[in-house]
């Protein structure tokens, strides 16, 4: 009986890996030929995306994705970790019980709603106060930061709460303040968990499509400042897939391939960092 159950579980585990492999295979099959034809370098580093002229350079989108994700992390990580520290260490359990679900609820709001708010409020604010078109890296980063908050906060809280109380006691018993204890003992102890939260948040930011299409402006030019419009890899696929045919369509699949590698590399690097001991 045990054997049967374990076989079944193995099968389930294998099948999800198999589905992943199938997806990868499909995207690769569609996308790799065009990269081979135009050359990987030309595809990755080409600055010009003009499907009608047969120009498929995705450098602007790579830069767009990187800038927006980095911006989102720059805003979201300090904010999220600070929230988590406050909730896990300094607030009363009653507040945690109210606020943590409230923050987690942010994850349930459809991304189109975030995009809508960004377009209605944030983009005009940026346009009037800071200049530029408003629909920009900055606007998208701010909105994505809020979208990554629930992930970062709730996983970081769990990580901090999982740190044995004895560490905290040991530090306080030496005369350390609460802050010193958080900074020097709890953070290092919870680092792997907090990083896992950041990685998942990053995954969300880099994969987000709808909100980004609405608020990043979607310009295919390489940006020069945080106030410029950009288009991300995901947005590029979503915007053009509806009408693309032939080589154009293949180029979009190839964009997907790059996105795939992107996420693999980032996750791999981050995981490795999370596991490193010292």
């Amino acid at each position: 009986m045990d054997k049967l159950v374990s076989r079944l579980l193995l099968l389930a585990a294998c099948s999800s890996a198999a589905i992943l492999a199938l997806i990868a295979l499909f995207i690769f099959k569609e996308g790799v030929p065009i990269m081979a034809r135009s050359g990987l370098g030309a595809f990755l580093l080409g600055r010009d995306w003009s499907p009608l002229q047969g120009q498929f350079g995705i450098l602007p989108f790579i830069i767009g994705s990187l800038c927006i994700t980095l911006g989102a992390l720059l805003i979201g990580v300090p904010l999220g970790v600070a929230c988590a520290v406050y909730l896990a260490e300094f607030s009363s359990p009653r507040w945690v019980n109210i606020l943590k679900p409230a923050i987690e609820l942010l994850a349930g709001i459809p991304s189109v709603v975030y995009g809508f708010l960004g377009v209605m409020w944030l983009a005009p604010l940026i346009r009037i106060r800071l200049g530029g078109p408003g629909l920009s890296i900055l606007a998208a980063s701010c909105v994505l930061a809020i979208m990554t908050l629930p992930t970062i906060v709730s996983i970081s809280i769990d990580a901090l709460q999982a740190v044995p109380k004895s560490y905290k006691q040991g530090s306080l018993a030496l005369g350390a303040t609460e802050w010193q204890t958080v900074w020097r003992v709890l953070f290092p102890a919870a680092r792997a968990g907090i990083l896992a939260g950041v990685i998942l948040g990053m995954g969300r930011a880099i994969g987000e499509t709808m909100a980004v299409i609405m608020i990043s402006g979607n310009s295919t030019a390489i940006p020069h400042s945080a106030l410029d419009s950009v288009r991300t890899l995901t947005a590029n696929i979503a915007i053009e897939m509806g009408y693309a045919t032939g080589e154009h369509r293949q180029a979009l699949f190839a964009t997907g391939v790059i996105l795939f590698f992107f996420i693999m590399i980032l996750n791999g690097a981050a995981l490795r960092f999370a596991r490193r001991k010292f």
Partner: peptide
């Protein structure tokens, strides 16, 4: 100072464990 029932060194290096107290002071 206080020593506890279960040894509770921090999940840090030996050095950082000992240096923690002086550092926070």
């Amino acid at each position: 100072g206080m020593v506890f029932q279960r040894p509770n060194p921090f999940p840090l290096s030996v050095y950082d464990n000992v240096a923690h107290g002086p550092r926070v002071h």
